[in-house]
């Protein structure tokens, strides 16, 4: 079909057809990106705004907070892959295979957090985790467990883990739903054949289920990688990157640099870095998609 059209109308026709998309892409994606790049090559408005070349990027390289944010972003990606995609897949497999009774109820409960905006999720959990009166503290007290003195979000060692946990609570349902849909596309008789072949549930999950949902798994992983890299709301609402800078991610640090430290051009430079990394991940995905 595509070949027919090309033969009849030539390349010019193709260009006309993609022109609207190209124009919108240029206007709303490329142009702002170019502007961000240009902005990042100039000094802050408070310092005259002259052209300074890559000075902002040099600052970045020696800015410990930037590297904390970068490290946290990478950690965030890894943790979210394990806890959102990994656990979501396991939940999906359990519901797909094991649980007969009440699976609809379980699915609804696990899926429900997804329909809540991340900001609201953050506010809800900030309340639950409130260190003096929150439900979590009360639960610890009721069960006699020791509660960390600075609470969960106020403790540098626990704050990041808490954010990961809340994020997982938010998104596991989504990942589970995608994976479950993919799993339910696997013919039942494959599982019966595997059972006849003597495959244990674990072997079946590994050898039949996982390869069968490879496409969905890659999709979920990409969503998590990109989502985690540009994460902002949850961290901002729960800890604002604190205590100190311990949970700072690039998203929160960009906002802070732009509007609290009043260094919008430096912030633009960091946005460019995020963009470049996102493009790298994106091409990786396209590349692996072509190969598969």
């Amino acid at each position: 079909m595509a070949a027919t059209i090309r033969r009849r109308h030539g390349t010019g026709f193709d260009l006309v057809m993609i022109a609207p998309a190209l124009a919108l892409f240029g206007l709303f994606i490329v142009w702002p990106a170019v502007q961000a790049l240009v902005t990042s090559l100039h000094a802050e408005p408070t310092r005259g705004g002259g052209f300074v070349g890559v000075a902002n990027y040099r600052d970045m390289a020696s800015d410990p907070v930037f590297w904390i944010a970068m490290k946290n972003n990478v950690l965030f990606i890894l943790c979210n892959l394990v806890f959102q995609v990994g656990v979501g897949t396991v939940f999906a497999a359990l519901i797909d295979q094991g649980i007969r009774r009440g699976s609809t109820v379980i699915r609804t409960i696990i899926f429900a957090p997804l329909v809540i905006a991340p900001v609201a999720i953050g506010v809800i959990w900030a309340m639950l985790l409130e260190p003096n009166f929150g439900l979590v503290r009360q639960t610890f007290n009721a069960t006699g467990l020791p509660f960390p003195r600075q609470g969960l979000l106020g403790n540098p060692d626990l704050a990041f883990a808490s954010i990961v946990a809340v994020g997982a609570w938010n998104y596991i349902g989504f990942m589970m739903t995608i994976m479950l849909a993919a799993m339910q596309g696997i013919p039942r008789d494959l599982y019966e054949a595997a059972r006849l072949d003597g495959s244990s549930p674990l072997q079946t999950f590994w050898n039949i289920t996982l390869p069968g949902v490879r496409g969905a798994l890659i999709l979920c992983a990409l969503i998590v990688v990109v989502g985690s890299f540009k994460t902002f709301e949850l961290v901002y609402v729960l800890t604002r990157g604190g205590p100190g800078n311990t949970t700072q991610v690039l998203g929160t640090y960009i906002v802070e640099a732009a509007f609290q430290l009043f260094r919008p051009n430096y912030a633009a430079g960091m946005s460019v870095v995020v963009l470049v990394v996102a493009i790298l991940f994106g091409s990786l995905q396209v590349w692996s998609g072509r190969r598969a």
Binding site: E130, N132, G151, G242, P243
Partner: peptide, 16 residues
């Protein structure tokens, strides 16, 4: 001070 200083909001501090 109370526990969890870093994650208590100023409003909660006043309200306590």
């Amino acid at each position: 001070f109370n526990d969890g200083i870093n994650s208590v909001t100023p409003e909660v501090g006043r309200t306590m």
